[in-house]
Simulated assay, not measured.
Amino acid sequence: MPQHTHALSRPCSHCDGFPAVAVTTGRTTPTGHRETITATCPACRGTGTSKIRPVLVAAGR
């Protein structure tokens, strides 16, 4: 029987819970692999969750 667990926090509205991505630079390394950099979401600072507390949302602030 499946157990449903609810998220303890809301996902970030800017990155939808995917806070870090690998972006190719277009260059290759000497071994032939693609060179990538990691970019994190500036809104949640790489956590993937919203920083807004539910109390402030309910109060309309």
Rank of each mutant, 00 (worst) to 15 (best):
M1K: 11
M1L: 06
M1W: 02
P2C: 05
P2F: 08
H4Q: 08
H4R: 11
T5C: 02
T5I: 09
H6P: 03
H6Y: 10
H6V: 08
H6D: 10
H6I: 09
A7R: 13
A7L: 14
A7M: 13
L8R: 14
S9I: 07
S9Q: 13
S9T: 12
R10G: 01
P11V: 05
C12Q: 00
C12F: 00
C12V: 04
S13E: 14
S13Y: 04
H14D: 07
H14I: 06
H14W: 08
C15G: 06
D16S: 12
D16E: 13
D16N: 15
D16R: 15
P19E: 04
A20H: 02
A20T: 14
A20M: 11
A22M: 07
A22I: 03
V23T: 15
V23P: 03
V23E: 15
V23N: 10
T24H: 09
T24W: 04
T25M: 07
G26C: 05
R27F: 08
R27V: 06
T28F: 15
T28R: 15
T28C: 12
T28D: 11
T29L: 15
P30S: 13
P30M: 07
P30T: 11
T31Y: 03
H33E: 15
H33G: 12
R34S: 10
R34N: 06
R34A: 13
E35T: 09
E35K: 15
E35L: 14
T36H: 11
I37W: 02
I37H: 03
I37T: 15
I37V: 15
T38G: 05
T38S: 12
T38V: 15
T38H: 09
A39M: 14
T40Q: 01
T40D: 00
T40G: 00
T40N: 06
T40M: 01
T40F: 00
C41Y: 00
C41E: 01
C41S: 04
C41A: 06
C41I: 03
P42H: 08
P42T: 11
A43L: 01
A43K: 02
A43Q: 05
A43D: 03
A43C: 05
C44W: 00
C44R: 00
C44D: 04
R45Q: 13
T47E: 13
T47W: 02
G48Q: 03
G48I: 00
G48R: 00
T49D: 07
T49S: 13
T49G: 09
T49E: 08
K51A: 15
K51R: 13
K51Q: 12
I52V: 09
R53M: 08
R53Q: 10
R53C: 08
R53I: 08
P54R: 12
V55D: 05
V55T: 05
V55S: 06
L56N: 06
L56Y: 11
L56R: 09
L56A: 05
L56C: 01
V57Y: 01
A58M: 10
A59Q: 10
G60A: 06
G60Y: 01
R61I: 14
R61L: 12
R61Q: 09
